[in-house]
Nucleic acid binder design. Structure first.
Lengths: 214, 214
DNA sequence: TTGAAACCTGAATCAGTATTCATGTTACGG
DNA sequence: CCGTAACATGAATACTGATTCAGGTTTCAA
């Protein structure tokens, strides 16, 4: 665990952060329970009672730490986003070039999503509860991504082009591939998937477009 | 209670289809109102009262034609999917090859989404109301798509590869590009977007991977 | 023209559930 | 050891909103 984030950055923070070790523990339990419950039941079907039951506390305790169900979702989206980014950065740190980083990134994303299926549901549902948090998530993700592509272009690893559009295309690929192969049908080998996408990114689809396989 | 029709094909069809011209008109008005209301307010925030108000009928009339709010969403997803597919088929019919069809298809999709923003919201929210309808939507879309890629491979237009994975990547691209550039920020020229994606599909990203621009 | 089926009405019902609050219980600095 | 702030409880509150229903109105085939 890293040190707790400064509360000043978060806008609508709850009724005050916990002041004792016990409170800290309880708050964490509730947040984890919310993640699981939203992840399996979905935001709307999940009741506060479901969350508190999963956390092993009374329903009123929820409001000691969170101002509302919606606020909890917001906090969850931010935290899950941070965790995913940290994971991806760790897993792509040793890539030799951008296209290798794309491969490692996609594989890491698939693995992460399979291990944390709640991420997908919480994030996608947040879109319709509070669109701004969803936009912020992808736009901040996209900004970093654009910078990485620009650097890769400078290094001569990829052709120059409209990197913003490319980034949204890339995020779309990960998203859909993840939904299909990490959440719905998990039997296909990640290696095959990554190889196919990598080939698409390196060479495109056109016949004779890139170097041949062998 | 009159003996209800027992339609064998469709499972949860409404309380019986309209039997007069007036009924037909009213049902259509309600369905259109539901599309608009779900599209702007979202499924959960939209009440039956909102829908019937928009349709100009009493709230009870809703249940003359639809068995539930959820059932209405299901019907809407199917109908909107049919309309989109018809549109895309029309717009890509005259493409000379697969990669040209991809260009025309993406442009047509963006245009359609900008003109029918409710499509996105209704479809994405349906995912969390009844996942099966959502899966069916993309899987049936995907199956046709795979067949088209296979045919294009036979014709030598694209390299052979794992077309299923490719199709999910392609659907992801359209989806995200559409969200960003047809719904959120509509000022970028579709031509730029299509050109960028087309270049990605034809040549990939790798430096020197494809034919140079000039 | 007529009567039965189809259609329309909107107030009432009814269940679910986020949030509050009055009342205990626990932690811990002094 | 206290005393007090922090924490925990769960029944009660307050409200929303989908669905029903008992009765009126319109349509249309005969």
């Amino acid at each position: 665990m890293t040190s707790p984030d400064s509360p000043s950055s978060i806008v609508g923070t709850a009724p005050g952060l916990p002041k004792t070790a016990r409170g800290e523990r309880t708050r964490t339990r509730i947040l984890k329970a919310a993640e699981e419950t939203f992840g399996t039941l979905g935001y709307h079907r999940a009741g506060i009672a479901d969350i508190t039951r999963a956390a092993g506390v009374a329903s009123g305790t929820f409001y000691t730490y969170f101002s509302s169900k919606e606020q909890t979702l917001r906090e969850l989206v931010q935290e899950m986003g941070r965790r995913l980014r940290a994971h991806l950065e760790r897993e792509t740190a040793d890539a030799g070039d951008r296209l290798e980083a794309e491969e490692k990134g996609l594989r890491a994303f698939l693995q992460y999503l399979r291990d944390n299926p709640a991420l997908y549901r919480v994030l996608q549902e947040a879109q319709f509860v509070d669109e701004s948090i969803y936009r912020r998530y992808y736009e901040s993700f996209g900004e970093r991504y654009v910078r990485m592509l620009a650097r890769a272009t400078d290094r001569g690893e990829i052709r120059s082009g409209n990197d913003e559009v490319r980034v949204w295309a890339l995020m779309g690929i990960s998203n859909f591939i993840g939904l299909r192969y990490a959440l719905w049908e998990t039997e296909m080998d990640f290696d095959d998937i990554v190889a196919t996408v990598s080939d698409l990114l390196r060479n495109g689809l056109a016949a004779g477009g890139g170097r041949e396989k062998s």
